[in-house]
Design a protein around this nucleic acid. Structure first.
Lengths: 168, 168
DNA sequence: TATTGTTATACTCTATAACTATA
DNA sequence: TATAGTTATAGAGTATAACAATA
């Protein structure tokens, strides 16, 4: 281990705790990228990150998802999912249906048009990420993938309201 | 390098690109923690993350900051900073003053009370992070700190509107 | 003319709780 | 009684643009 690393692990640098420093850096980095992605989503597809999130969940489930499932996956409360889904339905991206025996259950699924449009969003989104992360060493990317995953699973149990959000 | 890592770097897993997978994992992890922090900030201090962000910038600058500087540091547009700062001023956390020769410039700085309250917020915030990240290997934390920093600086040049946000 | 900050507007997100209809 | 989803409400964040005062 280098001396730098030792100093960091010991938490001596600026007296700030390692956990806090990591969190602030994680937050500002994510926010920086997020801001850019959000702007491009709005400019090029007139949509938002939460909407993109909902659509990406539905994209993987051709048979659709119950609203409660969408709520869990996206960490958005039930009441707010209704409004979010309504906006997307108004744009023709998805439909809501009551199909099953349990007549309380509403299932949302992408329309063919919604699937087509989200497909383009997803491809653009993927290319944006390739562009933005082009200068990062692939080995570093791979290491981060693993370690960020460790952070995510380590913290999960401390959360008050558990949302799974298996976005990876 | 393990075979797993090789597969990841080669981008073969599920055919998804490494950059995209990292981003989704970064986003969901940050969102998970962020949700928890936001909830605690609201429950215990009746405040929000953007407000906390503004206060933390001012905390480090006892002489205050120009509104434009706050705007850059927090990546919030000028017009919205006005409202944000107004809310904080109404709560007595900060004051706005026109002091300099250039009478267009407004400087915001924490009140003694605001400084005291934010101090408590910051200590609680730091403890929350220690709690949430308690199960993550310190070596992993240190590695992440370095590598996330690399990601941040590598991506900065691709951003349309540059916000510095030196939150670390 | 350019810059600093404000005002105005419209929309979206977020949190909370009460409510309907099913089960 | 519990659950799935809706409705209602209030507050805050976000994006955009026009504006006033000052430089």
């Amino acid at each position: 281990m280098s001396n730098d690393l030792e100093a960091i692990v010991a938490g001596t640098q600026e007296g700030k705790k390692l956990e806090l420093r990591l969190w602030l850096r994680l937050l500002s980095t994510t926010r920086l990228i997020s801001q850019e992605i959000r702007q491009r989503l709005r400019n090029e597809f007139n949509t938002t990150l939460p909407q993109f999130d909902v659509l990406s969940q539905l994209y993987r489930q051709p048979d659709g998802l119950r609203l409660g499932e969408i709520s869990q996956l996206t960490m958005v409360t039930n009441g707010n999912i209704t409004a979010l889904v309504e906006r997307l339905e108004a744009e023709g991206m998805l439909v809501r249906e009551r199909l099953g025996q349990d007549r309380r259950v509403t299932v949302a699924r992408l329309t063919p048009q919604g699937r087509e449009i989200f497909g383009r969003m997803a491809r653009a989104h993927e290319n944006w990420l390739k562009e933005l992360l082009a200068d990062v060493d692939p080995i570093v990317l791979a290491g981060l993938l693993t370690h960020v995953g460790q952070v995510k699973s380590s913290t999960a149990k401390y959360m008050s309201k558990s949302g799974s959000s298996d976005d990876d």
